[in-house]
C-alpha cells in the first residue's frame, strides 16, 4: 500500500465562484442559527420571573429563527439562480448524473474508500459522486422541505389572509394532517440536516487532510488544487 505524496505540477481549477462561496457560508450560518433557535422553540429556556413586558425571550428566539429563515430562503433563491448562470459546478448539486453508470461506480468507489477497502480516493474537480448524491437527496430536498414546511408554519402566524397562508399553509397543513404534524416533521428534518452537517463537516475536514485535493480552501478561495499529478484509472 502506498499513497506517496510526491511533488507535482498541476494547474489549479476555479470551481466555486464567489456567489457560491458566499452563499455557502451564509447558508451554513443561517442553518446553525435555525437549528439552535428551532430547538429552543420546541424546548424553551427555563422561565424568567418578573413582568411579562420586561422580557421578550421567546420573541427574540422566534425572531432570529424567522430572520435566519428569510436569509436562508433568499440565499437559496440566489443559489438556484446561480445554478442557471454560473459555471457547470454550480449545477452539480442540483443535477447529479444518476442516469450514468460511471456516476454510480464513483459512488461505490467513494464508499469503499470510506470503508478503508480501496487505498486511494479519486480526484474530482467538483464534488465527489457520493457527496453530490447526498447533497442532492439529503441537503437539497431537506432544504426544500424545511422551506415549505417553515413557510406553512409561518403562514399560520401571519393568518389566513397572508400569502404565506394562501400559498403554503392552506394545502401543506392538511397534507400532513394538522399543524402539530407539520411541527413534528419540521423538527424531524432539522435533525436530518444536523446529521448531514455533521457528516459533511467531518468529511470536509478528513478529505482536506487525507484526499489528494484541496477542500476547505476551495470553499474559501474557489480554487481546487491537487496534491499529486497521477491520473485516476
Amino acid at each position: 500500500m502506498s499513497t506517496k505524496i510526491t511533488a507535482h505540477k498541476e494547474e489549479a481549477h476555479y470551481i466555486y465562484e464567489a456567489p457560491v462561496r458566499l452563499w455557502h457560508w451564509v447558508n451554513a450560518f443561517a442553518i446553525v442559527a435555525l437549528c439552535i433557535t428551532g430547538y429552543l422553540i420546541g424546548k424553551p429556556f427555563p422561565s424568567v420571573q418578573g413582568e411579562a413586558s420586561d422580557h421578550y425571550i421567546m420573541g427574540y428566539v422566534r425572531w432570529i429563527h424567522f430572520a435566519s429563515a428569510y436569509i436562508l430562503m433568499v440565499g437559496f433563491a440566489g443559489r438556484v439562480y446561480w445554478a442557471f448562470v454560473g459555471n457547470k459546478h454550480a449545477r452539480q448539486i442540483f443535477l447529479p448524473p444518476i442516469h450514468k453508470l460511471g456516476f454510480w461506480q464513483g459512488v461505490v468507489h467513494e464508499l469503499l474508500w470510506y470503508a478503508f477497502i480501496v487505498p486511494e480516493p479519486k480526484k474530482y474537480e467538483g464534488h465527489n459522486p457520493l457527496a453530490a448524491l447526498i447533497m442532492y437527496f439529503v441537503f437539497l430536498w431537506g432544504m426544500v422541505f424545511m422551506i415549505l414546511t417553515g413557510l406553512a408554519l409561518y403562514g399560520e402566524g401571519t393568518g389566513m389572509d397572508s400569502w404565506q397562508f394562501d400559498y403554503f399553509s392552506s394545502w401543506i397543513i392538511p397534507l400532513f394532517g394538522q399543524s402539530q404534524d407539520v411541527h413534528t416533521w419540521h423538527r424531524l428534518v432539522m435533525w436530518i440536516l444536523i446529521c448531514f452537517a455533521i457528516t459533511h463537516i467531518y468529511a470536509a475536514l478528513r478529505e482536506d487532510i487525507m484526499s489528494r485535493q484541496s477542500l476547505i480552501g476551495t470553499m474559501i478561495s474557489g480554487w481546487r488544487t491537487f496534491k499529486d499529478s497521477r491520473k485516476d484509472d
Binding site: 430547538y39 420546541g42 424546548k43 470510506y114 478503508f116 413534528t184 416533521w185 423538527r187 424531524l188 432539522m190 435533525w191 436530518i192 444536523i194 446529521c195 455533521i198 457528516t199 467531518y202 478528513r206 487525507m210
Partner: peptide, 23 residues
C-alpha cells in the same frame, strides 16, 4: 422528534468519531 433525531445525530456523530479514529 428530538428522541428520534437526537439519537440519529448521536449515532452519526459517534460514527464520525470512530471513523476519524480509524482514519
Amino acid at each position: 422528534a428530538d428522541e428520534i433525531g437526537g439519537t440519529a445525530a448521536a449515532v452519526v456523530g459517534g460514527a464520525a468519531a470512530i471513523h476519524a479514529a480509524a482514519s
